[in-house]
Design a protein around this nucleic acid. Structure first.
Length: 127
DNA sequence: ATTCTAACA
DNA sequence: TGTTAGCA
């Protein structure tokens, strides 16, 4: 099994998370209501938190302790979210580029590729 | 016994 | 945020 799977595996009851984070169950549920974590649920609707959830709650607690309010935390979360989306988009763009170059190489083995490559790269500089 | 939601303080 | 009520 992979790391990212372990990090998101639903494992901990709210009481364990309370002990791990020193947050009250009230605070944990409150932060969830603001979208800072999204724990899985059992069939009985009880929360099951992952390591990733616990890490995130610890980050939230640190920010709260440093005086950041809910609005501030939400702003920081949206920034991180957009940053991640941007990186993801760039990865997909590079993936498309590699696939297209591969196709070109297979379908036109003897043709020079410089101009096509320049056209593709221009996407990274426009706007 | 433990957690859940909702609501009031 | 804390606490309580009433449920699952």
């Amino acid at each position: 099994m992979e790391q990212s799977e372990r990090l998101h595996m639903p494992l901990f009851s709210i009481r364990i998370v309370k002990e791990l984070t020193d947050l009250t169950p009230r605070q944990i549920r409150y932060y969830e209501s603001h979208g800072f974590v999204k724990p899985a649920r059992t069939e009985g609707n009880q929360r099951l938190f992952s390591f990733a959830d616990v890490d995130r709650l610890l980050d939230i607690k640190q920010l709260i302790d440093r005086g950041v309010n809910m609005a501030g935390i939400k702003e920081m979360m949206m920034e991180q979210e957009q940053k991640y989306k941007k990186e993801q988009e760039e990865r997909e763009e590079l993936k498309r580029l590699r696939e297209q170059m591969k196709r070109e190489a297979l379908h036109h083995p003897n043709q020079k590729k410089a101009s096509m490559i320049q056209g593709q790269l221009s996407h990274f500089y426009k706007s």
